[in-house]
Amino acid sequence: MRHALFSLALTFLAIAAQSAAGFEVEERHWIGPQDGTPLRVISTTDTEILAPLIKSYLLQNPGVAVDYTVANSSEVMKAVLEGEERFDIALSSAMDLQTRLANDGFTLPHRSAATALIPEWGEWRSHVFAFSLEPASIVLSASAFAGAGVPRTRQDLIALLRAQPERFRGRVGTYDVSVSGLGYLFATQDARTAEAYWRLMEVLGSLEPQLHCCSASMIERVASGELLVAYNVLGSYARARQDLAGKIVVVDPEDYTNLMMRSAVLLKGGSHPELARMFADHLISAAWSQPPAADYPFSKPPVAFVDSASPKRPIQLGPGLLVYQDAEKRRRFMAEWFSAVRKK
């Protein structure tokens, strides 16, 4: 159905995934007229997910095409830092990397009617703009937890894993923090927020966990029954998989749930900064308008989210995120994390 819409005056051109220069590209698409002015986007978000928004953007801006490159968050960072290929705008779920780009001067400031819609905690110094709010959830196998006993908090999960180590051995999963920027962000925020996190990692470590690059693979493995528990999975992805609805249970932990914000930064050195601004505004207004635009692909971001009593907390944008980007800090954290998780 999505693809049917695409054929409407637009061409959807998949360029063979190529390994350009120094960073690894997952996929690359040219969306829009062949001879259109290209807006070059580098993103961690799959093309399919953002396609409706890109399409509506192209409808509003005839003669423009979107050159959409997908890479994982560390590769997005690498692409920008090395600068061999120039992009106009970077979309990433790794808030710390986006903050780092803004702090180190790789981004352009932007203020518009759209950016004024963003709540204060959703943007940083008019350089980083959030356009989604997605929970770090626990995904459970529906069949394994059919007879109640679904853990609602980390404590519950720890108790459950400790109680039945044989049942869960080799069937628990989480992000590989050394591969996934988002996994690293979730892990560091967890470590900062709760003592229980390290205990959970110790317990996971004793159960020979499978480490994953991405949420999608964890969701699929839980659905297939290969995994019983996946920790720190993007809840928005899991809930979007209508086809797996009966096979997985998505739990937002009730002790606290970190909310990741997908964010956009306008890159310095892009060829079409004005197109990039319009694209950013398009994403932002789709996300933060009340109600959000019909083609907004994520679950609606709750604008009135400053309820401090809620266990759901957006990860705070700002220089605090730079701490975990520090090389020493990162080295130490990785060492500690792997010593917990790789324990036999």
Binding site: R192, Q316, P319, G320, L322, V323, D326, E328, K329, R332
Partner: peptide, 11 residues
């Protein structure tokens, strides 16, 4: 020598 910069230091 090693450093473990506290989150609060920059936040």
């Amino acid at each position: 020598l090693t450093a473990d910069i506290p989150y609060a230091a920059l936040s």
